[in-house]
Amino acid sequence: MKQEISLKVNGDTYDLYIEPWRTLNEVLREDLNLTGTKLGCGSGDCGACTVMIDGKSVSSCLTLAVEANGKEILTVEGLAPSGEALHPIQEAFIEKGAIQCGFCTPGMELSALNLLKNNLEPNETEIRHAISGNLCRCTGYNKIVDAIADAGQRMKSQQ
């Protein structure tokens, strides 16, 4: 039976009427056209679908949309405050060469945010643990680690 839910995504409120078995990933991509959030495996292993719910990074492929009812969701499209400017994490990913095919990038950036929101100066081990749920098959991990450390510095200097 369909249910009415309300999602606050990147600051915008969406009232939806959806089947309870649909995942947050499907609803974001198909109903809201927020296709920056990817689907890589559908079983919580690859991290390409990572979004934040109420400030915590989760796998949107394993989250039922109804479970997110009334919650605040942040996707990669909401990372930058406005159209032109980039989030420091995005700037760092671009400048440090942390992007190759780009399919893991949105999830990586949100995992980075999940780490940096509490710790702007993580060491390499902390960064690697923080992205342990995000696979990059272009094997660009070193540059991603560099980018996250750099993003922490950028965010610190903006404070």
């Binding site: 919580g44 990074s57 796998s59 394993l62």
Partner: peptide, 9 residues
């Protein structure tokens, strides 16, 4: 147990 995202859920 598992990874960051799974521990958050």
């Amino acid at each position: 147990t598992a990874n960051v995202q799974v521990r958050n859920m």
